[in-house]
Amino acid sequence: MLEVRNLRKEFGDFVAVDDVTFSLPQRGSLAIVGESGSGKTTTARMIAGLETASGGHILVEGEERGPGHKRQRQRQRLRSGERRARGRQIQMVFQDPYSSLDRRQRVGAAVAEAVALHQRLPADRLRARVAELLDMVGLDDRQAAALPKALSGGQRQRAAIARALAAEPQILILDEAVAALDVSIQAQILRLLADIRARTGTALLFITHDLGAVRHISDDMLVMQAGKIVEHGPVATVLADPQHPYTRRLIASVPKPGWIPRRRMDPAAAARLP
């Protein structure tokens, strides 16, 4: 359903994303794993349309929405109808739940605004749809009437997910969406996402540095390093039998029983660090 071909992003001389190619099937779940500077977030932002790609193709159901799109080629702005149609293709949930919501807007109103952008509904049906979305993410009436600052991080992230689902997107991108949450809350959100995928068929593109979360949320994974894909395969295979040295290094860095931290970086490599 989503196809990314030879995607590239340059910032001046710096190549942040280099020749990234992958596809995400209908109802699929793919994780892009990498550390800071790997280009994983830039890739996600280009796919969502928040960043303009320097080259390559982004296709949703065969339809170009990346640099090959005719309006983007002619440097024209999208019409509002087109923007909304794109919104029904891809939505995104961000890392920081505290700034993902407008601090002056009640949570229910934020979800209602998102619904109203995509469906013209009479007031009572709009209310019902908002209640349905909030219920799906586990928020009640009291939380719907609250301002973001009255909610916990996990509740805000639930609200952000409900808002994204309001557009009924085919693909939901999660950019480190649980990284800022408490451990016990991360598990709740991961389960919620798996549940949403099962119920709505929304495909998930999970951007993360957390290999543990990947096993629970994704079928396939990509490992990115310095803008390039270094490994690609089913999650269980990659975690059990990593081929690329960098993937092995990543897995070896995860604490587990009997794990002893080791310095693996040689001093020469350390000297090249910024």
Binding site: G154, Q188, H216
Partner: peptide
Amino acid sequence: RPSVFEAGADLRSIPGR
């Protein structure tokens, strides 16, 4: 805490916050 190493281990979440 989702485990990297145990396949199939169910993720138990704690209700509430």
